[in-house]
Amino acid sequence: MPITLVQGLVVTLLATICAIDLQLEGFFLFRPIIVAPLVGLALGDIQTGLLGGALAELAFAGITAVGGTVPPDPVLAGVMTVVLARTTGQPVTATFAMSIPFAILAQYASLLYNTALAFVNPRAERYAKEGNVKGILNLCTVSIILHALVYAVIIFLSTYVAQNGIRILVESLPEWLTHGLDVAGGLIPAVGFAMLLKVMLKGSFVPYLFLGFLFATFIPFDNILPVGILGVACALIAFYQSAKGPGGRVDGAIPIDGPEGGSDVGI
């Protein structure tokens, strides 16, 4: 059953609201279990929405946006699972698989958007220097609106205008380009870390960088919490050691030169 223009617009509106929440992670409206039933409602078939949502939600339960990575897009997966079930008459198990190219397209669109947004940083810094609070808040608003527009276009094209075209486009994206963007996405966070290190990394703190690095490398874990506990332990050792030493120099202990610059004789 084809999607009418009105249905296409309503689906685009609802799914774009969910996509804004995907960016903000405020209310978790972006999960397939919410998106798919909403789309089902808009298409007058909430049962298909519930079934597609349940399937896609479980499939996406292990795919999370932890740590700044951009996973396949849960909004497009939810939308297209239901839309394709309605247009092709296939069961949701089949249309969920068919939804993945659309989810990957939105994933790369998000990745590109988030990468391009790095070029807003100089402007954000300028507003900060000027004490321009309104300017900083406006940057957030404008970014939300632009992001929503990108999604609205993708969703409307995918659902109403060019379902087949989009699928062919995604499938014909050259491997070297998608792989290259993947690689770049893995490298760019290094710039952010290096900027912090530029401020914080003074001679006597270098050992702790290596400690954290080694710990995280050899104890692969889903999140940074164990490294945090190691860091707390190191910080407490230094804190209590520096209380004991009368003049700030502690014998046989971890070097404790403060950021305001003692000499590195402790090393």
Binding site: P189, A190, L211, C234, A235, G258
Partner: peptide
């Protein structure tokens, strides 16, 4: 001074872990 130093140690340790986890 001590809090600054302890907080910097914690922060730098975390950054070491973040490099291992986030930079690919």
């Amino acid at each position: 001074r001590r809090v600054n130093q302890a907080a910097t140690i914690l922060g730098v340790t975390i950054l070491g872990g973040l490099i291992a986890n986030y930079v690919a």
